[in-house]
Amino acid sequence: MSAKKSIRQIKRLGKKAKAPFPTKEAFVFLSFLIFSTLLWFLYKVSHVQELKVKVPIEYVGIPNNVELVGKLPKTLNVQFKDKGSALFTYILKQELPPFKVDLTGQFKGTGRISLPTNKYEGQIFYKLKPTATQIHIAPDSLIINYYSLYKKVVPVRFYGYIQPAQQFIITHGISVSPAFLEVYGNKQNLDTLKAIYTEPIHLKDVKDSVNSEFYLKVPRGIHLSQPRVKVHAAVEPFTEKTLEVPVTSINLPDQYLLRTFPATVKVICVVGISHFKTLTSESIQAVVNYNTLSRINAGKARIQVFSTSSDLIRYHVSPETVDFLLEIKK
C-alpha cells in the first residue's frame, strides 16, 4: 500500500469515528482507533515506500534570435523509493524545487535538440533525501524544436507622459537608454516594425528627476534583446530670467543697412534653477528676417528668437514687433 493510499484510509476511518455512539462505547472505539493508527504509522516509517513527485524545469541559455516550436515540458515526473519517515516530507511538498536545464550553445541554425533526462539524475538526487534510491525519470528525453529569426535594429520610443508638479519643469526632455534596440522576428514582421515603445507610463505631480527602468511593450511575434529600458527626465523647480538682447538681421542684401527701434528687446526666459546663471544673452539671438518683411505692414518687423542653449525651456519676447528703417549703404 502506498503512503497516499494509507493517508486516505486514515481519513475514511476518521469520518467513521464521527458517527454517533454512546459516550462510553465511543471512547473505547476512539482509543482502539488511535492505538491502531500509531501501530500503522510505526510500521510505515520503518519500511521503504515508493512515491512519485513532479520536478519543475527552469530553462536558461535560450537566445533571443530563436523561436521555439510548441511548448517546452514544464516538469519531469520522478519516481523513487525512500524510507517512510521521509515520504511525508515529499507528500506535503508535492513538487521539488526547480532544476536548471542550460541550453547555452545548443542552438545552431534551425533544427531539433534531444536531451536525455537521465543526465539530470545528479541534480534531482541532490534535491531528494540522502536515503532516496532507485530513481526513475519520465519522459526519458526532452525534445526541443526551433528555428532562427531575423535581426533588426529599431529606435526605442517613450510612450505616455511625465507631468511635473506646479512650479516644476522638465529641463532637457525625456530620454530613453538605450535609444536603439536589437529585435528579432520573421522577415514579414520586421519589415513593418518601425519602433519599440515602452509600456504606457503615466506619472503625475512629479517633483524629482525620473531615472527608472520600465518594461517595453513587445509586439506579437517579436523577441527583444532586453525586456526593459531606462527612462530619464530631469525635473526641477523653474524660474524666469530676463535678458536684454540686441536686434540683428538675417537674409539682408549687402546693399542695405537695417535699423530697428528699439535696438534691443527683452527676452523673458523660463529656465531650471540649476541653469539660471549659465543662461546668458550671448546664447540668444533676436533677429529680423528680411525675407519676412511685409509690404502691407510697412515699417513693422516681427522679432524671431533663436537660442544655442539647451537650458532654455520656453520664452517670450517684448516687444514682439519693432519699427525698422532700411537704408542703402553709401
Rank of each mutant, 00 (worst) to 15 (best):
L293H: 04
E95C: 06
C269I: 15
Q166M: 02
T117W: 02
I143A: 01
Y146K: 03
T23S: 05
I170Q: 03
L30P: 00
L128F: 11
S281F: 03
Y147K: 15
S36C: 10
Q166I: 11
T198Q: 08
I296G: 10
G221F: 06
V270C: 09
L149S: 06
L193Q: 04
L279M: 11
K129C: 01
V287R: 07
E199H: 05
F107R: 05
P98C: 04
F180I: 11
P164N: 01
A132H: 05
R228Y: 13
A3Q: 07
F261T: 14
S177P: 00
K194M: 13
Q94F: 11
L252S: 04
Y150H: 09
F125P: 00
P253L: 07
K18I: 13
P246C: 12
K187H: 05
V322G: 03
I124C: 07
L87C: 08
R112K: 15
F32N: 12
R228W: 04
A179P: 06
P155R: 06
L193V: 10
L68S: 05
S318F: 07
Y146G: 08
V270L: 12
P130A: 12
I303Y: 07
K74I: 03
H202L: 11
E240V: 10
V271T: 06
K207L: 06
L326H: 04
G173C: 10
P56V: 08
G14M: 14
K241G: 15
P73V: 10
V176W: 01
E327A: 13
Q9L: 12
L92E: 10
K71D: 13
K151F: 01
R259W: 00
G173Q: 05
L252Y: 01
A263T: 14
Y59M: 10
I91M: 15
Q188N: 12
V218F: 01
E199P: 00
